[in-house]
Design a binder for these strands. Structure first.
Lengths: 136, 136
DNA sequence: TAACAATTGTTGTTGCTTATAGCAATCCAT
DNA sequence: ATGGATTGCTATAAGCAACAACAATTGTTA
């Protein structure tokens, strides 16, 4: 079939993102985590006592949508909340959460390495800076 | 906030795809088209009498999910169906569909050009081949 | 040619994700 | 001290894709 779409960088960007996201998701599923979950665990691990709204701003997730996400993680015993003041609550990893986070990071790093291997050598080092420029 | 995520190519890939998709979507909205719609119009334009299942295979969209997509385009008077044999039907652009398709292509090409401009010169030419390798 | 397998278009359902609006409580700055 | 902003939350709606199932038709091969 004649298909001019792959010649559009934007189209290839979407397809590449879909393909890699599907692969990573299936690997994270073994930890019963989704990509968002892993992102949240990593950010909370790096920033103890971060608030839900700050996380949302960082990940471009609206406040309202953070609620069910964090509830899942809390119900799974991966994070804890402790009140910082009357209205804000700090988020921290539980010990189970730290363990999961480590495992997730291992999976993600292995995945990223494999992914980069798929990119032909001369283009490889240009991928990250090129992508970064597109959303910053 | 400490945020190691942007250093992961996979994460930057997802963020870049989201950011660019949002931008392109808002531009296509002026034609009352979504990205899928535009993709379908372009493919049908290039391949008259293509079937719904062939389109789905090309775009990695399941047969079942093609139904509402094509129905929208048909209801909008952009495509026509004609039976090829007892069960298959060929899809073609109506004249209105061809007009829309041209407009969409203009918007997309302008968008792609602007998008590439955002990528610093030394990385630019590597973007498409790098992305292509990730989903093929 | 008769039986079996694969394909096509479709329906209906489900779950996931995001958008949106609104609300009460609290914090902060003038 | 008051008004505006922020935080966490509820509830709702919409869009999108996955999945299973089905009837009709086509093709393959024994």
């Amino acid at each position: 079939m004649r298909d001019p779409l792959p010649d559009f960088p934007g189209y290839s960007l979407r397809r590449a993102a879909n393909a890699t996201a599907a692969e990573l998701s299936s690997r994270l599923a073994e930890l019963e985590l989704r990509q968002v979950d892993a992102s949240l665990l990593i950010l909370i691990g790096e920033n103890p006592d971060v608030t839900a709204s700050a996380l949302g701003r960082q990940l471009d997730i609206q406040r309202a949508n953070m609620v069910p996400l964090l509830k899942r993680l809390e119900d799974a015993g991966l994070i804890d909340r402790k009140p910082l003041d009357g209205k804000s609550q700090g988020l921290v990893l539980t010990s189970a959460g730290e363990e999961k986070c480590k495992q997730a990071q291992a999976i993600i790093e292995a995945f990223e390495t494999e992914m980069l291997q798929r990119v032909p050598e001369p283009h490889r080092e240009h991928l990250l800076p090129a992508l970064y420029a597109l959303w910053n």
